[in-house]
Simulated assay, not measured.
Amino acid sequence: MEIVTVDELKKKIEENEDFQLVDVRETFEYETSNINGENIPLANILLEKDKISKDKPVIIHCRSGKRSAQAVKLLEGQGFSNLANLEGGIIAWRDQFDPDMIVY
């Protein structure tokens, strides 16, 4: 499984790279705090897989990296080969860049 660090993600955002960011946390978690990814909760990931690009890199994240790792495995089983898991999830993002961010 490919891993992306929060530093690598921040660089991709700052350089306006063409990629998709998917947040697999529950909607209430996403509404509390997010980093502008598309919210597709893990429970719906296979039902909503058509919302996930196959034509560009996709970084999947959650709170800590565990649910997003599950999402990557599920999607890879469906033929996706362009996925990466955000190491440490939004907690790592908060710790590195936004200490005031509330993470549910």
Rank of each mutant, 00 (worst) to 15 (best):
L47D: 15
S68K: 07
V72Q: 03
N82F: 04
I45R: 03
H61D: 12
G77W: 01
A69K: 10
I52G: 01
L46T: 07
D55C: 00
K73R: 15
Q78H: 09
K54V: 10
I59Y: 03
K73I: 09
I52E: 00
K66D: 14
P57K: 10
R63T: 15
Q78N: 13
S64N: 07
G77L: 00
K66H: 11
A71P: 11
K56I: 06
D50R: 10
E76M: 10
E76S: 08
D50M: 08
K73A: 15
R63F: 11
G65R: 02
E76I: 04
A71S: 14
S53W: 01
N44R: 13
L47Q: 15
F80G: 10
P57Q: 07
I52P: 00
E48F: 07
A69R: 08
E76W: 00
I59R: 05
K66F: 08
K51F: 02
A43K: 13
R67E: 06
S68T: 07
S68Q: 04
I40F: 11
Q70S: 14
H61A: 07
K54T: 06
L75G: 04
P57L: 06
I52M: 01
R67Q: 12
I60G: 00
S81M: 09
C62H: 04
N44D: 15
L46D: 10
